[in-house]
Amino acid sequence: MTPLLSVQGVCKRFGGLAALEDVSLTVNDGEIYGLIGPNGAGKTTLFNCMTGLYSVSAGQVLLRGTAIQNRKPHEVVRRGFARTFQNIRLFANMTALENVMVGRHIRSRASVLGAVLRGRRTREEEAAVRARARELLDYVGLGGKGRLIAGHLAYGDQRRLEIARALATEPKLLALDEPVAGMNPVERQHMRELLLKLRHGGLSLLLIEHDVKLVMGLCDRVAVLDYGRKIAEGDTASVQRDPAVIAAYLGDGA
């Protein structure tokens, strides 16, 4: 079977600077795949290339065999690839529920005319979108907080809301950019449980994370980026022992 996500020889250059050099990796169904590396290694750049925010300079990104590189972001989302952000980027002035409802945008279709006339189909669809958004809030543990303004939620709740919003697009693959950054140990533990629950629900996860304990405990396989190149890939144990990885994190002299 074609792998869920296959990144093949992706390069990204900004002017003369090579941010990504010939990066390849594959994510299989139901897998939690970790992407780690020192700051500035190109992890977020790779996310941006995969989700249509950046064009790639060379290479291919295939989602279930279909090329998605250089497509518009909303087309990538439509094909079932959603993401969250390193620095939380909610629609801060909208309620938590509305944030999730925006995620339903591509899975619903009411037109301007429908919105003005508010016919039965439009109203039913709107009710379904609302109901689904509530379910998702419950699912990530934000049940009852739907009416709060997103920007007023506690930090950990904002992270969860980002995940709920991404889930609303019905992804097959969810890319999470540092989901536990800035969280305390209790919040980290909750996030970890949520991620396991997502995988259990059949979702594949691609995870950028600095928290080594989380990555090693959660991921099935890990790739390590350094200076825009993949320097190692494999199961967590072998990657941890890899001399190139140790050198990248601790410096060559170590």
Binding site: L53, K72, F91, M94, A115, V129
Partner: peptide
């Protein structure tokens, strides 16, 4: 109160994020 209005408000807050949540 409508799907398109929601997408408009989302786009107004951040074009980039709205795109990545599937808004054209």
């Amino acid at each position: 109160r409508s799907r398109l209005g929601r997408a408009m408000r989302a786009t107004a807050q951040s074009r980039e994020v709205a795109q990545l949540m599937g808004v054209n």
